[in-house]
Design a protein around this nucleic acid. Structure first.
Lengths: 152, 152
DNA sequence: GAATACCCGACTTCTTCGGTCCGAGTTCAG
DNA sequence: CTGAACTCGGACCGAAGAAGTCGGGTATTC
């Protein structure tokens, strides 16, 4: 449970890849898919979603492809996941238009909503660039540490 | 995405309900199911899992039912979710026995594993009792705040 | 021994994720 | 201008997992 979809995974990988190759004006879906061994067609769809969400810029035609619309530093993992999987909520019914159909039940929700916010905060604090700079052989932990507060 | 299953929801609700009624020596699955309007049979199965995991104690026969095996304060939301949905991981492949099958790809995983730990930490910091004490009309936020650190 | 309640595995249904296919529009090179 | 290379975007499908149901078995109390 509590896992993000492969699409989101792929999306993050793709953005990371783009961040690692800033010299390229554009990379095609196939390039990225091949680099990671993921189905090209699927990646294509994901990249399309990211484009529609404004995280990527696409360029059709030969030597076309995708490029980051913003600096890698300015794109958070949260945005990516949001663009691909839509708004996420820990709980099944969290304030959907219908609220919780279960009787006066959902007293659970309120505390969990805080947890939800916390997670969102963590994901917002992580940028694509952070993912790309994975070159820290376990030992000297990088200090981009983020402090997150949770108030029940 | 990133949502927990209804089973986990139900489990948390049930434990919360038990925590709110410490005077009762035992509550049947049906009692709890009726209180929240959730399918009794399903809840029963969930409670059984929780019993097997040692979070609840069951007692058969008339006036039997379930009771918390530990103090509500001593049971974390993390344990409940773990007991019901099994170990969760943000990423699809996080260190499964096979590791990540994708080429040398999973560079994403390492940073996300940290996120995973952070979330786990947050959930561990929340007890069933915290859920039961939901009586804080928005205004005077309770200060059971937990500080969680995330180091990329 | 009957009523109540837990125990537990099998089964059905339903949703959604992961993945594929294909047609259409766009851009660039020759 | 024509065609190759590429993106765009919707339709489609199979598999997996979640949600919920059913039925038989066992323990406990009255």
């Amino acid at each position: 449970m509590l896992k993000l979809t492969k699409k989101a995974d792929y999306g993050l990988m793709a953005l990371k890849y783009l961040a690692e190759h800033p010299e390229m004006p554009a990379l095609s879906a196939k390039d990225i898919a091949d680099a990671y061994g993921i189905p090209a067609q699927l990646l294509a769809k994901i990249l399309q979603q990211l484009t529609k969400s404004g995280l990527l810029r696409s360029h059709a035609g030969m030597n076309g492809g995708y490029a980051l619309a913003r600096e890698a530093r300015e794109v958070s993992a949260f945005e990516v996941i949001l663009a691909i999987d839509g708004p996420f909520f820990i709980t099944s019914c969290t304030k959907g238009k219908t609220g919780c159909e279960l009787t006066p039940s959902c007293t659970i929700r309120e505390p969990l909503a805080r947890v939800n916010d916390t997670i969102a905060g963590v994901l917002k604090s992580i940028s694509i660039q952070d993912l790309a700079e994975h070159e820290h052989p376990p030992g000297h932990a990088r200090e981009a540490s983020a402090l997150v507060e949770l108030t029940l």
